[in-house]
Protein backbone atom coordinates (compact mmCIF):
# COMPACT_ATOMS: atom_id res chain seq x y z
CA UNK A 1 0.00 0.00 0.00
CA UNK A 2 1.34 3.39 -0.94
CA UNK A 3 1.55 5.90 1.85
CA UNK A 4 -0.56 8.91 1.26
CA UNK A 5 -0.04 12.24 2.93
CA UNK A 6 -2.99 13.68 4.67
CA UNK A 7 -4.74 16.37 2.72
CA UNK A 8 -3.35 15.37 -0.61
CA UNK A 9 -5.68 13.38 -2.78
CA UNK A 10 -3.94 10.28 -4.13
CA UNK A 11 -4.19 10.90 -7.85
CA UNK A 12 -2.43 8.75 -10.38
CA UNK A 13 -0.54 11.60 -11.96
CA UNK A 14 0.93 12.72 -8.66
CA UNK A 15 2.52 9.33 -8.26
CA UNK A 16 3.74 9.03 -11.79
CA UNK A 17 5.45 12.36 -11.94
CA UNK A 18 7.28 11.68 -8.72
CA UNK A 19 8.46 8.21 -9.63
CA UNK A 20 8.98 8.35 -13.36
CA UNK A 21 11.45 11.12 -13.72
CA UNK A 22 14.38 9.45 -11.97
CA UNK A 23 13.43 6.11 -13.45
CA UNK A 24 13.50 7.52 -16.96
CA UNK A 25 16.92 8.96 -16.43
CA UNK A 26 18.33 5.77 -14.95
CA UNK A 27 16.68 3.77 -17.72
CA UNK A 28 18.53 5.85 -20.22
CA UNK A 29 21.86 5.57 -18.48
CA UNK A 30 21.30 1.86 -17.90
CA UNK A 31 20.56 1.46 -21.60
CA UNK A 32 23.70 3.40 -22.46
CA UNK A 33 25.72 1.32 -20.06
CA UNK A 34 24.41 -1.87 -21.57
CA UNK A 35 25.18 -0.71 -25.09
CA UNK A 36 28.66 0.35 -23.93
CA UNK A 37 29.45 -3.24 -23.02
CA UNK A 38 27.79 -4.55 -26.19
CA UNK A 39 30.01 -2.17 -28.20
CA UNK A 40 33.11 -3.16 -26.30
CA UNK A 41 32.50 -6.90 -26.32
CA UNK A 42 33.64 -7.73 -29.89
CA UNK A 43 36.80 -5.66 -29.53
CA UNK A 44 37.61 -7.15 -26.14
CA UNK A 45 36.90 -10.64 -27.40
CA UNK A 46 39.27 -10.21 -30.35
CA UNK A 47 41.98 -8.77 -28.10
CA UNK A 48 41.57 -11.60 -25.62
CA UNK A 49 41.84 -14.16 -28.43
CA UNK A 50 44.77 -12.55 -30.19
CA UNK A 51 46.75 -11.28 -27.19
CA UNK A 52 45.57 -12.61 -23.82
CA UNK A 53 45.11 -16.29 -24.56
CA UNK A 54 48.25 -16.69 -26.74
CA UNK A 55 50.33 -14.98 -24.05
CA UNK A 56 49.08 -17.42 -21.42
CA UNK A 57 49.70 -20.28 -23.85
CA UNK A 58 53.28 -19.13 -24.47
CA UNK A 59 53.92 -19.02 -20.72
CA UNK A 60 52.40 -22.49 -20.39
CA UNK A 61 54.58 -23.89 -23.21
CA UNK A 62 57.64 -22.46 -21.46
CA UNK A 63 56.84 -24.77 -18.53
CA UNK A 64 56.52 -27.88 -20.70
CA UNK A 65 58.60 -30.10 -22.97
CA UNK A 66 56.64 -29.08 -26.10
CA UNK A 67 58.25 -29.60 -29.48
CA UNK A 68 57.15 -28.15 -32.81
CA UNK A 69 55.90 -31.52 -34.07
CA UNK A 70 54.05 -32.42 -30.88
CA UNK A 71 52.39 -29.40 -29.30
CA UNK A 72 49.39 -31.33 -28.02
CA UNK A 73 51.47 -33.88 -26.16
CA UNK A 74 53.37 -31.27 -24.16
CA UNK A 75 53.95 -32.31 -20.54
CA UNK A 76 54.54 -30.03 -17.58
CA UNK A 77 58.20 -29.99 -16.54
CA UNK A 78 58.26 -27.06 -14.12
CA UNK A 79 60.97 -24.45 -14.53
CA UNK A 80 63.37 -26.81 -16.27
CA UNK A 81 63.57 -24.61 -19.39
CA UNK A 82 64.69 -21.69 -17.27
CA UNK A 83 66.79 -23.35 -14.62
CA UNK A 84 67.95 -26.87 -14.01
CA UNK A 85 70.73 -28.42 -11.96
CA UNK A 86 71.93 -31.77 -13.15
CA UNK A 87 73.77 -33.70 -10.46
CA UNK A 88 76.29 -36.08 -11.97
CA UNK A 89 76.30 -38.19 -8.83
CA UNK A 90 80.01 -37.82 -8.13
CA UNK A 91 79.72 -34.56 -6.27
CA UNK A 92 79.84 -32.49 -9.45
CA UNK A 93 76.99 -31.12 -11.47
CA UNK A 94 76.05 -28.53 -14.03
CA UNK A 95 73.44 -25.84 -14.44
CA UNK A 96 71.31 -25.79 -17.58
CA UNK A 97 68.43 -23.72 -18.84
CA UNK A 98 67.86 -20.29 -20.25
CA UNK A 99 69.18 -18.45 -17.20
CA UNK A 100 72.53 -20.20 -17.64
CA UNK A 101 72.68 -19.94 -21.42
CA UNK A 102 75.40 -17.52 -22.56
CA UNK A 103 73.71 -17.26 -25.98
CA UNK A 104 70.57 -15.88 -24.30
CA UNK A 105 72.49 -13.36 -22.22
CA UNK A 106 74.39 -12.35 -25.34
CA UNK A 107 71.02 -11.68 -27.02
CA UNK A 108 69.84 -9.68 -24.00
CA UNK A 109 73.01 -7.61 -24.05
CA UNK A 110 72.76 -7.04 -27.82
CA UNK A 111 69.15 -5.90 -27.56
CA UNK A 112 69.65 -3.60 -24.60
CA UNK A 113 72.79 -1.95 -25.99
CA UNK A 114 71.20 -1.61 -29.44
CA UNK A 115 68.16 0.04 -27.83
CA UNK A 116 70.20 2.37 -25.64
CA UNK A 117 72.51 3.54 -28.44
CA UNK A 118 69.98 3.88 -31.24
CA UNK A 119 67.28 5.56 -29.14
CA UNK A 120 69.84 8.05 -27.77
CA UNK A 121 71.06 8.96 -31.25
CA UNK A 122 67.50 9.17 -32.56
CA UNK A 123 66.44 11.46 -29.74
CA UNK A 124 69.35 13.83 -30.30
CA UNK A 125 69.02 13.83 -34.06
CA UNK A 126 65.22 13.97 -33.84
CA UNK A 127 65.50 17.05 -31.66
CA UNK A 128 67.73 18.76 -34.24
CA UNK A 129 65.32 17.80 -37.06
CA UNK A 130 62.36 19.04 -35.04
CA UNK A 131 64.01 22.39 -34.28
CA UNK A 132 64.79 22.87 -37.98
CA UNK A 133 61.24 21.94 -39.01
CA UNK A 134 59.86 24.32 -36.38
CA UNK A 135 61.69 27.28 -37.90
CA UNK A 136 60.10 29.38 -40.63
CA UNK A 137 61.78 28.98 -43.99
CA UNK A 138 60.91 28.59 -47.64
CA UNK A 139 60.13 25.00 -48.62
CA UNK A 140 59.44 23.83 -45.09
CA UNK A 141 56.47 21.75 -46.23
CA UNK A 142 58.68 19.98 -48.78
CA UNK A 143 61.31 19.18 -46.18
CA UNK A 144 58.69 17.85 -43.81
CA UNK A 145 57.37 15.61 -46.59
CA UNK A 146 60.89 14.36 -47.35
CA UNK A 147 61.44 13.50 -43.71
CA UNK A 148 58.39 11.22 -43.75
CA UNK A 149 59.81 9.02 -46.52
CA UNK A 150 62.08 6.79 -44.40
CA UNK A 151 59.21 6.24 -42.00
CA UNK A 152 56.91 5.07 -44.81
CA UNK A 153 59.38 2.56 -46.24
CA UNK A 154 58.85 -1.02 -45.01
CA UNK A 155 61.58 -2.18 -42.62
CA UNK A 156 62.42 -5.13 -44.85
CA UNK A 157 62.86 -2.80 -47.83
CA UNK A 158 65.09 -0.44 -45.85
CA UNK A 159 67.16 -3.37 -44.62
CA UNK A 160 67.66 -4.55 -48.22
CA UNK A 161 68.38 -1.04 -49.53
CA UNK A 162 71.02 -0.47 -46.88
CA UNK A 163 72.45 -3.97 -47.27
CA UNK A 164 73.11 -3.04 -50.90
CA UNK A 165 74.52 0.38 -49.99
CA UNK A 166 76.75 -1.28 -47.39
CA UNK A 167 77.91 -4.03 -49.75
CA UNK A 168 81.64 -4.51 -49.21
CA UNK A 169 82.62 -4.52 -52.90
CA UNK A 170 80.01 -2.49 -54.73
CA UNK A 171 78.47 -0.47 -51.92
CA UNK A 172 78.10 3.26 -52.29
CA UNK A 173 78.69 3.88 -48.59
CA UNK A 174 82.28 2.61 -48.73
CA UNK A 175 82.80 4.65 -51.90
CA UNK A 176 81.56 7.82 -50.19
CA UNK A 177 83.58 7.31 -47.04
CA UNK A 178 86.73 6.53 -49.04
CA UNK A 179 86.27 9.66 -51.13
CA UNK A 180 85.94 11.74 -47.99
CA UNK A 181 88.93 9.94 -46.51
CA UNK A 182 87.23 8.54 -43.41
CA UNK A 183 88.24 4.98 -44.28
CA UNK A 184 91.18 3.77 -46.36
CA UNK A 185 89.87 0.37 -47.45
CA UNK A 186 86.36 -1.02 -47.98
CA UNK A 187 84.53 -2.23 -44.89
CA UNK A 188 82.27 -5.30 -44.88
CA UNK A 189 79.69 -3.52 -42.78
CA UNK A 190 77.17 -6.27 -42.22
CA UNK A 191 79.54 -9.24 -42.11
CA UNK A 192 82.35 -7.84 -39.98
CA UNK A 193 81.70 -8.64 -36.28
CA UNK A 194 82.96 -5.22 -35.23
CA UNK A 195 80.71 -3.20 -37.51
CA UNK A 196 77.61 -5.41 -37.76
CA UNK A 197 75.87 -3.82 -34.79
CA UNK A 198 76.72 -0.35 -36.07
CA UNK A 199 75.24 -1.26 -39.44
CA UNK A 200 71.99 -2.20 -37.70
CA UNK A 201 72.03 1.01 -35.66
CA UNK A 202 72.68 3.17 -38.75
CA UNK A 203 69.66 1.72 -40.56
CA UNK A 204 67.47 2.04 -37.49
CA UNK A 205 68.51 5.65 -36.93
CA UNK A 206 67.80 6.43 -40.56
CA UNK A 207 64.39 4.80 -40.44
CA UNK A 208 63.02 6.06 -37.14
CA UNK A 209 64.54 9.51 -36.60
CA UNK A 210 61.62 11.03 -38.60
CA UNK A 211 59.14 9.50 -36.16
CA UNK A 212 61.04 10.98 -33.23
CA UNK A 213 61.32 14.33 -34.98
CA UNK A 214 57.58 14.51 -35.63
CA UNK A 215 56.66 13.64 -32.04
CA UNK A 216 59.08 16.23 -30.68
CA UNK A 217 57.90 18.76 -33.27
CA UNK A 218 54.32 18.33 -32.00
CA UNK A 219 55.63 19.19 -28.53
CA UNK A 220 57.54 22.20 -29.85
CA UNK A 221 54.49 23.59 -31.60
CA UNK A 222 52.59 23.64 -28.32
CA UNK A 223 55.13 26.02 -26.77
CA UNK A 224 53.40 29.44 -26.87
CA UNK A 225 55.16 32.00 -29.06
CA UNK A 226 55.09 34.77 -26.45
CA UNK A 227 57.57 32.81 -24.34
CA UNK A 228 60.19 33.38 -27.03
CA UNK A 229 59.01 36.96 -27.48
CA UNK A 230 59.60 37.69 -23.80
CA UNK A 231 63.03 36.06 -23.84
CA UNK A 232 63.97 38.08 -26.92
CA UNK A 233 62.94 41.35 -25.29
CA UNK A 234 64.96 40.47 -22.20
CA UNK A 235 67.94 39.88 -24.49
CA UNK A 236 68.56 36.31 -23.39
CA UNK A 237 70.89 34.27 -25.57
CA UNK A 238 69.01 31.76 -27.78
CA UNK A 239 71.09 28.84 -26.50
CA UNK A 240 70.14 29.72 -22.94
CA UNK A 241 66.49 30.06 -23.98
CA UNK A 242 66.65 26.59 -25.49
CA UNK A 243 68.03 24.92 -22.38
CA UNK A 244 66.10 26.94 -19.80
CA UNK A 245 62.75 27.37 -21.55
CA UNK A 246 62.21 25.15 -24.59
CA UNK A 247 63.71 21.91 -23.29
CA UNK A 248 61.79 21.84 -19.97
CA UNK A 249 58.57 22.62 -21.84
CA UNK A 250 58.96 19.83 -24.38
CA UNK A 251 60.32 17.34 -21.84
CA UNK A 252 56.99 15.41 -21.59
CA UNK A 253 56.81 15.04 -25.37
CA UNK A 254 60.39 13.75 -25.48
CA UNK A 255 59.85 11.32 -22.62
CA UNK A 256 56.78 9.82 -24.28
CA UNK A 257 58.55 9.58 -27.64
CA UNK A 258 61.52 7.84 -25.97
CA UNK A 259 59.38 5.18 -24.28
CA UNK A 260 57.46 4.47 -27.49
CA UNK A 261 60.68 4.10 -29.44
CA UNK A 262 62.45 2.08 -26.74
CA UNK A 263 59.60 -0.43 -26.48
CA UNK A 264 59.72 -0.78 -30.24
CA UNK A 265 63.50 -1.22 -30.26
CA UNK A 266 63.48 -3.83 -27.48
CA UNK A 267 61.36 -6.17 -29.60
CA UNK A 268 63.40 -5.65 -32.80
CA UNK A 269 63.22 -8.60 -35.13
CA UNK A 270 62.88 -7.95 -38.87
CA UNK A 271 65.72 -5.46 -39.33
CA UNK A 272 68.28 -7.73 -37.67
CA UNK A 273 66.88 -10.91 -39.22
CA UNK A 274 67.24 -9.50 -42.74
CA UNK A 275 70.27 -7.20 -42.49
CA UNK A 276 72.63 -9.45 -40.51
CA UNK A 277 71.34 -13.03 -40.63
CA UNK A 278 73.07 -15.59 -38.38
CA UNK A 279 75.32 -13.07 -36.71
CA UNK A 280 75.91 -13.54 -32.98
CA UNK A 281 77.04 -9.91 -32.64
CA UNK A 282 73.59 -8.61 -33.50
CA UNK A 283 71.22 -11.43 -32.53
CA UNK A 284 68.38 -9.86 -30.53
CA UNK A 285 66.09 -11.48 -27.96
CA UNK A 286 63.26 -11.77 -30.49
CA UNK A 287 65.54 -13.39 -33.08
CA UNK A 288 66.86 -15.80 -30.43
CA UNK A 289 63.31 -16.79 -29.45
CA UNK A 290 62.07 -17.15 -33.04
CA UNK A 291 65.06 -19.35 -33.99
CA UNK A 292 64.51 -21.67 -31.05
CA UNK A 293 60.78 -21.87 -31.69
CA UNK A 294 60.79 -22.60 -35.38
CA UNK A 295 64.26 -23.43 -36.61
CA UNK A 296 66.01 -25.43 -33.87
CA UNK A 297 62.88 -27.38 -32.87
CA UNK A 298 63.19 -26.24 -29.26
CA UNK A 299 59.65 -24.95 -28.97
CA UNK A 300 59.50 -24.97 -25.17
CA UNK A 301 62.89 -23.30 -24.86
CA UNK A 302 61.87 -20.61 -27.37
CA UNK A 303 58.65 -20.08 -25.41
CA UNK A 304 60.72 -19.58 -22.28
CA UNK A 305 62.80 -16.96 -24.10
CA UNK A 306 59.59 -15.23 -25.30
CA UNK A 307 58.23 -15.20 -21.77
CA UNK A 308 61.43 -13.72 -20.35
CA UNK A 309 61.47 -11.09 -23.11
CA UNK A 310 57.93 -10.16 -22.15
CA UNK A 311 58.91 -9.85 -18.49
CA UNK A 312 62.03 -7.81 -19.31
CA UNK A 313 59.99 -5.36 -21.39
CA UNK A 314 57.22 -5.13 -18.79
CA UNK A 315 59.78 -4.48 -16.09
CA UNK A 316 61.62 -1.80 -18.08
CA UNK A 317 58.31 -0.09 -18.94
CA UNK A 318 57.11 0.05 -15.33
CA UNK A 319 60.53 1.24 -14.16
CA UNK A 320 60.64 3.97 -16.82
CA UNK A 321 57.08 5.17 -16.12
CA UNK A 322 57.96 5.41 -12.45
CA UNK A 323 61.29 7.18 -12.98
CA UNK A 324 60.01 9.58 -15.65
CA UNK A 325 56.70 10.04 -13.78
CA UNK A 326 54.77 9.71 -17.00
CA UNK A 327 51.07 10.39 -16.87
CA UNK A 328 49.84 7.73 -19.28
CA UNK A 329 46.48 7.06 -17.66
CA UNK A 330 45.28 10.66 -17.75
CA UNK A 331 45.54 10.92 -21.51
CA UNK A 332 42.89 8.40 -22.32
CA UNK A 333 40.28 8.95 -19.63
Amino acid sequence: MAEVEAGVPPTETAFRVKRDEPRMRSDLSRQRLRSAWIFLAPMLLVLALVAGWPLLKTIWFSLTDASLSDLAGAKFVGLRNYYEYVDYGDGTGEYFGLLFDPAWWNAVWNTVSYTAISVSIETGLGLVFALVLNAEFKGRAMVRAAVLIPWAIPTIVSAKMWAWMMNDQFGILNDMLMHVGLISSPVAWTANPETAMWAVIIVDVWKTTPFMALLILAGLQMVPGDVYEAAKIDGIHPVKVFFKVTLPLIRPAILVAVIFRALDALRVFDLIYVLTPNNTQTKSMSVFAQENLFQFDKFAYGSAASTLLFLVIAFITLFYIKVARLDLGGRGG
Binding site: L47, A51, P54, L56, T58, L71, A289, L293, F299, S306
Partner: peptide, 21 residues
Protein backbone atom coordinates in the same frame (compact mmCIF):
# COMPACT_ATOMS: atom_id res chain seq x y z
CA UNK B 1 45.38 1.35 -19.94
CA UNK B 2 45.06 -2.35 -20.81
CA UNK B 3 44.49 -1.48 -24.45
CA UNK B 4 47.56 0.75 -24.42
CA UNK B 5 49.55 -2.06 -22.79
CA UNK B 6 48.52 -4.49 -25.54
CA UNK B 7 49.78 -2.07 -28.19
CA UNK B 8 53.20 -2.22 -26.52
CA UNK B 9 53.21 -6.02 -26.52
CA UNK B 10 56.27 -7.65 -28.00
CA UNK B 11 54.80 -9.75 -30.82
CA UNK B 12 57.22 -12.55 -30.06
CA UNK B 13 55.56 -13.07 -26.65
CA UNK B 14 52.35 -14.27 -28.29
CA UNK B 15 53.98 -16.01 -31.25
CA UNK B 16 54.08 -19.52 -29.76
CA UNK B 17 50.50 -19.38 -28.47
CA UNK B 18 49.19 -17.84 -31.71
CA UNK B 19 51.00 -20.45 -33.76
CA UNK B 20 49.28 -23.26 -31.87
CA UNK B 21 45.91 -21.51 -32.28
Amino acid sequence: LTILAVSMFPQIAVLAGLFEM
